[in-house]
Write a protein that binds this DNA or RNA. Structure first.
Length: 565
RNA sequence: GCCCUUGUAGUUCAAUGGAUAGAACAGGAGACUUCUAAGCUCUUGAUGUAGGUUCGAUUCCUGCCAGGGGCACCA
């Protein structure tokens, strides 16, 4: 309908004022009482025509009234010159039918049909524990992956574990010192503690630097040695842990590219472009931006020891991403501390392959501070993702036990806890820092993950009771008054498209909240299942359309709908 | 010092340059012998500051104030 109205207005502009190519909008008004769609076309062209917007709107409406298509009920002028459209109840009934027919396809778009999109997220640092900052990256990345799927693209989920660095070498040094060459990891805590200890020790004790650098060299070059053996065992253990925790959060990865691989590739590429793109300086290989790029800094790509830095690894990663299989778009998600880093990498990459930059999208999110203290995994003291989920799950269980209702159990507890967690992350536009306080950020009431789940579960429980009722309807009942719920429902596909265009899951969150409020409000004043009520079949259809829309929307957020609450 | 970024109710977050700046939590009040009260109804309360562009600015531009980040061999 959005497109139909847009076309109609374009015709009206051409026929009435002989104007074309105006950038007006057709959208859902903020205030639902203003109608179902609204346009600012008259306001936009008023200056160009030198006329009062209201006069223009009147002229346009005259044309629109004569040519309006089926489904449009009234066309009115309001405010400074907005033209508002309201739709007929037959149109809403028709849309409900569409929702029930399309089922899980309802809302999906075809903007990226036939394309291959690569989404990189959740990249762990082996030896550093998976903490709540990673949960944030995972929640956003997983949702963007699902948005990409909803755009009809073929989607590959990828992660880029940081498996090699000086930090890793430091950790291996400590592990060898403490446990010897036969060390087999069995506990993640030991690795995490060793990482913290290693960072501190390296800063304080210069006498170990030579040995740590030797370890780094052997790891970079896969040289058979005790450190190589211990390192491989640790790497395997870390990856298995990573897979377990991300699976619990609802993610699966199709491809892994390790920093060690990307580093080797990147090093070759960088060395192959000296001095055309990169410059040797003080024994290292650096990228020096042009004078005009004051917003980016000079960065080291290969250090004086000959090993690739983070920058060269990302060059290698770009190359590998675009060579593994043909892709049309590469989306990667990091926190915004890394924005300056990627600006340099992309500036350099643009001189190697413009395609790499043109087809890359960097989604960056804020950082999480925990109870006011900035998170630093290197210094320790940051809650592990697993601990956090467990703690929230316990709260969910406790709440259920105190509710007086049937006590929930098993997977449902985790589903609700993760919903609360993901919601607190996805509700905000990515890019801003989140001040995460479990006391207040993690809510089960009001705007929250569980609220969205609860609304859906409640609707579904009615549908179970209505199983025997025939919900087949050809039109809205005569006495029916269109509700806000129907008015909200029809906009779901536009919201999904909007979220895809901006790669912003929070648009989905905002919409689902408003939709739930519309349903709960309606539910509070209307009895859906009434024997002998002619409108009951329609109300059940409406409830079903709501449940379907919620399920689809929550799926895009990576939030499950529990079987009961 | 240079560059990037953020500032909206007491708190946590919304608002493609548009209509009366929306929610939730916290505070105050209320309804229900009815399909799940993690719910519903009513209510108090906000654009850091000074200018500029515009018919119209939370949104764009400039200065200031305050927070966060980056600035060569960490990732």
């Amino acid at each position: 309908m959005e497109l139909t109205i847009t076309a109609l207005i374009e015709h009206a502009l051409r026929e009435t004022f002989s104007i074309e190519g105006v950038s007006f909008v057709v959208e859902q008004p903020k205030d639902i009482s203003h109608g179902d769609y609204s346009t600012n076309a008259a306001l936009v062209i008023s200056k160009q025509l030198g006329k009062n917007p209201k006069e223009i709107a009147e002229a346009l409406v005259t044309y629109l009234e004569e040519n309006k298509t089926i489904g449009i009920d009234t066309i009115t002028i309001a405010g400074a010159g907005f033209i508002n459209f309201s739709l007929t109840k037959e149109y809403f009934a028709e849309q409900l039918k569409t929702i029930l027919e399309q089922q899980e396809q309802w809302g999906s778009s075809d903007v990226h049909k036939g394309k291959h999109i690569l989404v990189e997220h959740s990249s762990p640092n082996l030896f550093k524990p998976f903490h709540i900052g990673h949960v944030m990256n995972n929640a956003i990345g997983e949702s963007i992956k699902r948005l990409a799927q909803a755009s009809s693209a073929t989607v590959t989920a990828m992660t880029f574990p940081s498996d090699i660095s000086l930090g890793v070498a430091k950790t291996i040094f400590i592990l060898l010192e403490k446990f010897g060459t036969d060390f087999i990891p069995t506990d993640l805590g030991v690795l995490g503690d060793s990482y913290v200890e290693a960072t501190k020790r390296y800063d304080e004790d210069e006498s170990i630097h030579a040995r740590v650098k030797e370890i780094a060299d052997n790891l970079y070059n896969s040289t058979p040695s005790p450190e190589w053996t211990v390192y491989q065992a640790c790497k395997k253990f870390n990856i298995e842990y990573f897979e377990k925790i991300t699976a619990r959060l609802g993610s699966h990865f199709d491809t892994y590219i390790y920093e060690s691989e990307a580093g080797a590739v990147g090093k070759e590429i960088v060395l192959g472009h000296v001095p055309a793109v990169f410059t040797e300086s003080e024994g290292a290989v650096v990228y020096i931006p042009e004078e005009s790029r004051k917003d980016i800094n000079t960065a080291v790509f290969i250090n004086s020891q000959g090993n690739p830095t983070y920058e060269a690894k990302d060059i290698g990663l770009l190359s590998m991403k675009f060579h593994q299989s043909p892709i049309d778009l590469s989306i990667f998600i990091t926190d915004n501390q890394q924005v300056p880093h990627f600006q340099v990498v992309l500036a350099a990459a643009e001189k190697l392959h413009t395609e790499w930059v043109e087809k890359s999208v960097h989604v960056h999110h804020g950082r999480m501070s925990f109870k006011g203290q900035k998170m630093s995994s290197r210094l320790g003291g940051v809650p592990l993702a697993e601990t956090l989920i467990d703690t929230v799950s316990e709260e969910v269980l406790e709440r259920s036990q105190n509710s007086g209702k049937e006590i929930i159990a098993g997977d449902i507890v985790d589903e609700i806890a993760i919903a609360a967690l993901k919601f607190s992350i996805l509700r905000a536009a990515a890019g801003k820092d989140i001040n995460f306080d479990p006391e207040t950020s993690l809510s089960f009431e009001g705007d929250s993950g569980p609220y969205l789940q609860y609304s859906t579960v409640r609707a579904k429980s009615i549908l179970v009771k209505a199983e025997n009722l025939d919900i087949d309807f050809s039109a809205a009942p005569k006495e029916w008054q269109t509700t806000n719920l129907e008015k909200m429902l029809i906009h779901f596909p536009e919201v999904v498209t909007h979220a895809i265009e901006a790669w912003s899951p929070h648009f989905i969150v905002t919409y689902l909240l408003e939709l739930s409020q519309a349903f709960n409000s309606w539910y509070g004043t209307t009895k859906i299942l009434v024997e002998g009520d002619d409108t009951s079949p329609y109300k059940v259809a409406l409830t079903k359309a709501f449940a379907q829309t919620m399920t689809n929307g929550l799926q895009l957020l990576g939030i499950k709908v529990p079987s009961k609450m």
